[in-house]
Design a protein around this nucleic acid. Structure first.
Lengths: 228, 228
DNA sequence: ACATAACTTCATGATTTTATAATATATAAT
DNA sequence: ATTATATATTATAAAATCATGAAGTTATGT
C-alpha cells in the first residue's frame, strides 16, 4: 500500500496547527482529513475510516485520550494507528495514553522533518503490505475480493450475481490468457452440466454492463480474455 | 502471544544501563538478552532471533544506526521491532534512524515507567495477534460480549438463543466474509450433525428479527455475511 | 410431568438468477 | 460490396433461491 492510499486524520482545536500538519503530511503523499474536537473526529472517522490518527490531548468536548479509548473500543479501529502530538508535559499523561492503546506520543514542539519521519516510521508496516484488503486481488481500477464475494470498480462496490462473479473469477486467474467458451463452461458450469455456448456470451455481456467493457476482450473464433 | 514469549535484545556499551533496562523489561515479563556492541549484537541476534531490539547509538566497533541498517537488510529481521534509546541529541540523527527502518527513537533520560509503556506500545500488535478471541467486540450499534454471552443493540441487551448467538459469533469473526450454508453448518452445528440447509435460513431470520436486518446480508446462491 | 423455550423441517409465494431463443450488429473473407 | 460467420443484445420463460409462517419435535427448567 502506498502513502497515497493511506488516510490520516488529524485532530486538534487550533486551526493553525491543523493546517500546518495537514500540509506537511499531504506533501508526503498522505490523504488527510481534519477535525477540531474528539466528538467531531469520532463521527467523521466512522465514515472516513482512517489508517492513522494524530491527536492533540487538550480539546473542548472530548479530549484526545478519551477519543483514543473510544476508538480502541470499536472493531473498525482495532488496527488503526494512533499517535498523540501534544505540548502537554507530564509522564503520567504519556503513560496513560500509551497504555490506552496509542502507538506513539510525540512531544511538541517538533521539527516538521522529524515529525514526518516519525509518521513514516509508524505507517511503514502498513505500506509494506500489498493490498488494502486482505485476500483481495488488485487489477488496476478493479479490485476483487474472493472472500467477501465483492467487486469494486474505482472503490465502488458492484453487485454481481454468482455466475457473473465466477466467470470474472475464472478470467482473472490468468489475465491475458484466452479462455474458449468450452473451457469457461467446463470450469464455471462444470463438465456434467449441459449448457449452450451462447450462454457464455450473455454472461459476458452482463459483466461488461456492470464493470465496463474495457476489461473483457473478445477474440473472434477463439474466446474471451481479461486484461487490465 | 504473551510478553513471556517475546524476546528483547538490548544493545548498549554501558553495563549499568544494560542492567537497568534488562531489569525493567524482565520485570514486565519479557525475555531479555543483551550485547555491548553492534558486532556482538548481530551475531547473537542471528541465533536468538529477537522480536524487539533496543539500541544505543554510540558504541565501539559498530554503532546503533549501522546495526539497524544491517538488521533491516536481513530477511530474518524484516518484521522485527527496532527502537533506539539514546542520549544523542540532534534531529538529523533521529530522522536518519527512523528513515532507516527504526520503529521508535526514544530520548534519554527517560523515566522507567514511560520507557516500559513505550516498549509495551511497540509490542502491542505482536501480543494482540492470538489473544483476540475473548471479551467484547464493538461493531458500532452492536456490541457482542463473547465471555458474557451477551449482545447489546444501541446499549440495550438482547436475549439470543444459543444457536442464534453462535451463528452471530461465527459471522462476526470475519465481517464482510461470505459464509456458505455448509460452512455455517460445519462450524456452528459440527461436521457430524445432519441438518438441512434451510435451517440456517430460519436462524438467520430469527437473528434478523432480533438485531435488525441491516447487519446480515444474503448473497443469493452463495451464503450470508455480516457487515456493520 | 408439565410448561416453556429452542430447534428443525416443511410448504408457499415472492424474488432473483439463469438459460435459451430470436434478432441485431460486427467482423473477416471473398 | 457482398456474403458468411461470429458475436452482441434484448426479451422472456424456466429454474433456482430465499423469506416467511406454521407445525412438529426435541430439549430445558420448574
Amino acid at each position: 500500500m502506498k502513502k497515497a492510499d493511506l488516510k490520516v486524520m488529524i485532530v486538534d482545536d487550533e486551526p493553525d496547527i491543523l493546517e500546518f500538519l495537514s500540509f506537511a503530511l499531504a506533501r508526503e503523499g498522505y490523504q488527510v482529513e481534519t477535525a477540531a474536537d474528539g466528538m467531531e473526529a469520532y463521527s467523521i472517522a466512522l465514515k472516513y475510516q482512517p489508517h492513522l490518527f494524530i491527536l492533540d490531548i487538550m480539546m473542548p468536548q472530548m479530549d484526545g485520550v478519551e477519543l483514543c479509548a473510544k476508538l480502541r473500543e470499536h472493531e473498525l479501529f482495532q488496527d488503526s494507528l494512533i499517535a498523540f502530538l501534544t505540548a502537554k508535559s507530564g509522564d503520567d499523561t504519556e503513560v496513560e495514553a500509551l497504555d490506552m492503546g496509542a502507538d506513539d506520543y510525540i512531544h511538541k514542539p517538533i521539527k516538521p522533518k522529524v515529525f514526518v519521519s516519525r509518521i513514516n516510521a509508524l505507517t511503514r508496516r502498513l505500506r509494506k503490505k500489498k493490498t488494502n484488503d486482505a485476500g483481495a486481488k488488485n487489477f488496476g481500477r478493479l479490485i476483487i475480493n474472493h472472500e467477501k464475494f465483492e467487486v469494486k470498480l474505482d472503490g465502488v462496490a458492484i453487485a454481481l450475481a454468482r455466475k457473473e462473479f465466477e466467470l470474472l473469477r475464472l478470467l482473472t486467474t490468468k489475465p491475458g490468457k484466452v479462455f474458449s467458451r468450452q473451457e469457461i463452461l467446463n470450469k464455471v458450469w462444470g463438465v456434467d452440466v449441459i449448457v449452450v455456448d451462447r450462454t457464455v456470451d450473455v454472461h459476458v455481456r452482463k459483466l461488461r454492463g456492470k464493470i465496463g467493457s474495457e476489461f473483457i476482450k473478445t477474440l473472434k473464433g477463439v474466446g474471451y480474455k481479461f486484461t487490465f
